[in-house]
Every structure is written in C-alpha cells, then in structure tokens.
C-alpha cells in the first residue's frame, strides 16, 4: 500500500517541501503497518497515545503519588526512605483550628492566612481578568486602525518572564519608584504602595492581570473570529440592538472559549507565585502571602524545612483545583446540553 498523500499538479516550492514529508511517511509506513497487524485497528489508538501517557505518567502522576507519600511523613529529612511515616498527622496539623476564619486560632496560622489571601486573590483576579480579556478581545475584534500593532501591545507582557514582570512593577511601585516620582512631580503626596496592605494586594492582582491578560485575550479573540459574520448581519437586518446581539449571539457562541479561559485563569490564579514573590515577597507582613509561597517556604526556604507539611498543603491545593475545574466543566456541559435542546 502506498502512502495516501494527495498529489498536487505543478512544481515549485510547495512540491519541494513535500519531498521530505513523503520520505518520512514512506519510511514509517511499513513498520506502522506491521504494528497494526499485531495490535489490530483498535490497538492503534493505544499505540499512538502511549508515549504521551508515559510522559504524563512520569512527570505528572508519579510526582503526584510521591508528593502524596511525602504528605504522610514527618521530620526534616529530604529523602522519602529516611522519613518517618506519620499517617494523616500533617493534614490534622493543617486543619487544627479553633476558628477557620481567624488564622491566629490555628496551629498553622500562616497556612490559613495564605488560604484566605489566595481565596480573595482568586475571586478578584479571575473575575477582573475575564472581564478585561473579554473587553479587550471585543475591542481588538473591531476594525481598528493598526489592529495588529494593538494586538502585539496587549500580548507583549505575556512574553516577559514573571521575574522581569515583578521587577518592572517593583521599580514602578516602590517608595522611590516611577509612580511616586510622577506623583511628586505633579505636586501630589507620594505613597508607600508596597508597604500598604490594601495597595500591595491590589498591586499583585493588577500586575498578574497585566502580565497574563494578553494570552487570554488571544484565546477569546480566536473565538470571536470564528463566529460567522452572517449571524450578526441577520441580527442587524432584524433590528437587533448591539447589546442584545452580544448577549444572544456573541456570548453563547464564545462560551466554549470562555470556559477554557475560566479554567486556565483559575488554575493560574490559585498557583500564583513568581511575580508576587519578586514584587512583594508576600508582604507587608503576610498580606500577599499566597498558598504556593507558603508551600515553597515551608518545604524549601525556612530553616529546618518540613517537606511533609508542604506536601500536605500542596495536595489540598490540588484537590481544591480539581473540584473547581470539575464544577466548571460540569456547568459548561450543562450549558451546552441546554443549548442543544433549544
């Protein structure tokens, strides 16, 4: 059997580029046919998925189980065999609290402070990120002058390393930073933004939105461009107002993209670490200490590290993420089914 590659008439660059493709396909054709004969047509799916699953297993599942094993151990030793099995003691320590709303009443007060901070951060950052990404995508989807330039402008921060993002904003927001210089030049009172609990929290939310918004805007923009134009033309002919067109056409058809964005933003928000670590270091006090930094500090940065406690905290964070993702996917499917029934 010959490789079923469609041939196009004519010569030139395209034809020349196909030569190595044909060579490769010809080379793998015989071994693949041999594998197919051995496994059957049904087994080919497993065959093709196996390398991917192997990588996933080694780099995701295995570390997850190792991490779980760590969470069941105590002591300061790093290697699992050197550690003492303590069962669920680390989880019990994390949950040892008189009042969960008051971290000071908990044995691991810093953990609950980090949980509270992360919850507020997620709530604010996810909603604002989606709002801003959507608005930006809608604007960039219009016939703007220099549209490609504006798209590049919004996407540019995504290309920066989180450390660079943190440093840039630190230079802007610190006591003798650019922002205070501007305020001072205008005769206004400078402010210690990063020493103020509320402002530093707002800064972490704002900076993370600035740094990542471009990526989500791009996903939403792709979704917007896939919506057939004739739907809007028909709506316009029917005299539909733009707001109604947005709610009735744009939003429902954008929902799959929006769902992907929500899941990605949420996961990223819960895992926030690098730019915040550089920008505020978790301060002032612990007002911008988020869960990942707590895990990092407990497992790696403090004197006499506690990898077991850090592992338990990360397992709990993983469980929360899985639950949130499943809820969102469930809601998404429900919405799709509802749409299909209509």
């Amino acid at each position: 059997m010959k490789a079923n590659v469609p041939r196009r008439s004519g010569s030139g660059l395209g034809e020349a580029a196909m030569v190595p493709v044909r060579l490769v396909m010809g080379a793998v054709d015989a071994p693949l046919r041999w594998v197919q004969r051995r496994l059957g047509i049904g087994g080919m799916a497993t065959f093709f998925l196996l390398p991917n699953m192997l990588i996933f297993g080694i780099f995701v599942l295995l570390p997850f189980f190792i991490n779980f094993a760590y969470s069941m151990t105590g002591g300061t030793a790093l290697f699992l065999p050197d550690r003492t099995f303590v069962g669920t003691e680390q989880y019990a320590r994390l949950f040892d609290c008189v009042n969960y709303a008051d971290p000071n009443s908990c044995t691991e007060d810093t953990f609950w402070t980090a949980v509270g901070n992360t919850a507020w951060f997620v709530l604010l950052q996810v909603s604002l990120m989606i709002l801003f990404s959507l608005v930006t995508a809608l604007i960039l989807n219009r016939d703007l002058m220099a549209r490609s330039f504006w798209r590049a402008v919004f996407f540019f921060p995504v290309l920066l390393s989180p450390v660079v993002v943190g440093l840039i904003w630190k230079w802007i927001l610190q006591r003798q930073g650019l922002l205070n210089f501007g305020l001072y030049s205008l005769g206004l009172e400078p402010h210690t933004w990063l020493n103020d609990r509320n402002w530093s929290f707002a800064a972490t939310v704002g900076v993370s939105i600035w740094a990542h918004m471009g990526f989500y805007t791009l996903i939403l923009l792709a979704g917007l461009q896939a919506i057939p134009k004739d739907l809007y033309e028909a709506a316009e002919m029917d005299g539909t107002r733009p707001a109604r067109a947005f709610w009735r056409i744009t939003l429902p058809l954008l929902m799959p993209n929006l769902l992907v964005v929500v899941v990605l933003v949420l996961i990223r928000a819960v895992q926030i670490f690098d730019e915040v670590y550089v920008l505020t270091g978790g301060g002032p006090g612990t007002s911008t200490l988020y869960l990942t930094q707590y895990i990092y500090e407990t497992g790696f940065a403090t004197q006499l590290r506690n990898p077991g406690l850090a592992a338990a905290a990360s397992i709990l964070m993983g469980v929360v993420l899985v639950i949130l993702t499943l809820v969102q996917l469930g809601l998404g499917r429900k919405g799709e089914n509802k749409g299909a029934r209509k």
């Binding site: 020493n195 505020t280 270091g281 978790g282 301060g283 002032p284 006090g285 930094q293 500090e297 940065a301």
Partner: peptide, 24 residues
C-alpha cells in the same frame, strides 16, 4: 524603617544598605 521589615513574609533576608548608600 518599616520598609525593610514588612517588605516580605517568612524569614526572607532584606538589607537596608541601599537606603544608607543613597543618603536616605
């Protein structure tokens, strides 16, 4: 100076040398 002490969480080290060097 509050800046040095509240500028991080945990036991992260921070110095105030730059403020002294800058005459602040």
């Amino acid at each position: 100076s509050k800046d040095v002490w509240v500028s991080a969480a945990g036991s992260t080290y921070r110095a105030a040398a730059d403020d002294f060097i800058n005459g602040q």
